[in-house]
Amino acid sequence: MIELTDLTKRYNGVAAVDSLSLSIGEGEIIGLLGPNGAGKSTTILMTTGLIEPDGGEIRIAGYEMQKEPKRAKALIGYMPEDVGFYPRLTAAENLDFFGKLYEMEREKRKRRIDDLLVLVGLDGVQTQVGGYSKGMRQRLGLAKALLNEPPVIILDEPTANLDPVGVSDYRRIVREAAAAGSTILVSSHILAEVSVICTRIALLSRGKLVADGTWQEIADHGKGVVIRVEGRRPLPEFPIQGISSVIYTPDRVGAVIAADHDIRDAISDLVASAGVPLRNLQIDSESAEEALLQRFREEARS
């Protein structure tokens, strides 16, 4: 759905994005991560057609952004970081204006706007957007990104100003959109947020793609993983290759296992063969986040 090929952008001779190639398929939720100056914003601005690349190609559902910008943009729903609207218009009036730009028919536009305002919890708010809080503007931004029922949704720091309820709503809406077949590209600094919502991560550093895979694949790169196990009865010993340590709880129904790679399948088989029903078996996400942070630091240092 999104094809970036050899994408390059230079500012004053310095490459902000350097020969970036990335292919994102239908229904994927991909997180664009990287330290400051990694090239995330430039990549998003080029993908949305807001800035011209110096080299390379951007294709949205087959339409090349540089050659057919209107067709390509018509397939994108974009919410920039710190999204802005026309302050003298209400939420519905703002969405109506943008809906006209998508050439949506009047009746369809009205129905869609009503539905979206309900979806993001802004129905019944009749005041001008100028009086909105940042969180309300962000909710409206999400509604705007979904307005044209786009096959590609690009969200830049989508939860930065949302309260916990807003974050929960946002996750639900994004998952529903992905389930309906939309391709979603999320740029965020909140690693925990990315880990919860994204099915895949692209890690950028100095304008280059340095890692592309699932959250765990990237975090695991050259690092160990921490696995938490909980049984309904005391757990057996774990004579599995790759384990560096096992710490049992006093009653032995729980254990924290450090391994050099994801061995959850082996653990599950072993526990089952010991006749112990499993209550919980998961990667310790805090440790994964810590590992990813470490990679961030390494990339930033390099």
Partner: peptide, 14 residues
Amino acid sequence: ETKSLKVLLSHPVF
């Protein structure tokens, strides 16, 4: 100032 320019130009407009 209202940061609406990026939003506007991300639509199918020249």
